[in-house]
Design a protein around this nucleic acid. Structure first.
Lengths: 151, 151
DNA sequence: TCCTTGTTGATGCAATTGCATCTATATGGA
DNA sequence: TCCATATAGATGCAATTGCATCAACAAGGA
């Protein structure tokens, strides 16, 4: 039988986590909107595809990386393809699937989003916490992750 | 001129924060859905109204507390009123406004949600971090908040 | 009083999301 | 081969959200 009642410390940390993460996301999304740039989820996809290189990624591989549902990935990729940011290629050994690759203008868009996104992160994180505190924070958050981070 | 390029530590902490908070929310929402209970936002409203007591709250007072847009609060309250969880009362000294108060079945719903929500918090937070670590985490997160927490 | 401006809350419409399901292909066993 | 089951991705429809705007009242000055 698992413990069902959280400690006051757990409640306080949870409340802070919920509120702060939402604030940070909202402010960042607002900054992107103000520049006429697409939402954070687009950056996540562009980032993953850029990391993946020429081989690209299969849509199902994006599901866990960007924490979207399968239909979310499907529709997000459709919109991004319509905007010319990614391209879909048939995959030879699996007739069901496709490979998604970032395009040149996708890379350009990624740079433009990062100019705003990176500045938000610098402002909100570096502006408030020391490098050491940021490491401590990342370590603690890592232990909340599923599966827990080892570091 | 603000710094525009985040440190590696800031990026790592940000990435952890984004990912962990989304995971925690998603798991909690799933647990609620599995029990046929409404989303977390409903709990937030019920919680605030319960804290506010008999006097209730004006809808605009909920905006910052639950981090929803004005129209989000308006529509969420409409749904909750339709479900009998809250009631709207005209307010005497301002003909535009209304006061929202939690009902008995709202309190009951709050209890039912907390049974699941609290268990999630206990499992995810107390199950992973010590009370001391939770305090440290809350303190660090507090400094990211806007406005920064003093503790 | 009248007019202008600000505040509170609701809503029409378009975009997005969630849910369930569908098509197409793959895989493995009878 | 044939069939049952699993996997990859798309999509119809309903619910929710975002954006812009609206209506109603408030507040303050001319």
């Amino acid at each position: 039988m698992t413990k069902t009642s959280p400690s006051p410390e757990a409640i306080a940390a949870w409340a802070r986590l919920m509120r702060v993460s939402r604030q940070l996301v909202e402010r960042t999304e607002d900054a992107l909107k103000a520049k006429g740039l697409p939402p954070l989820a687009w950056y996540d996809v562009l980032h993953e595809l850029a990391e993946a290189g020429e081989g690209g990624l299969r849509p199902f591989e994006l599901i866990d990386r960007v924490l979207l549902a399968q239909y979310g990935v499907s529709r997000l990729l459709a919109r991004m393809e319509a905007d010319g940011l990614v391209e879909k290629l048939p995959v030879s050994d699996d007739g069901r699937g496709q490979t998604v690759r970032i395009t040149a203008s996708g890379r350009e868009m990624r740079r433009r989003i990062w100019a705003v996104y990176g500045a938000c992160i610098a402002d909100r994180m570096d502006g408030r916490l020391s490098a050491q505190d940021l490491k401590t924070l990342a370590g603690l958050l890592g232990r909340l992750r599923h599966p827990p981070a080892s570091d």
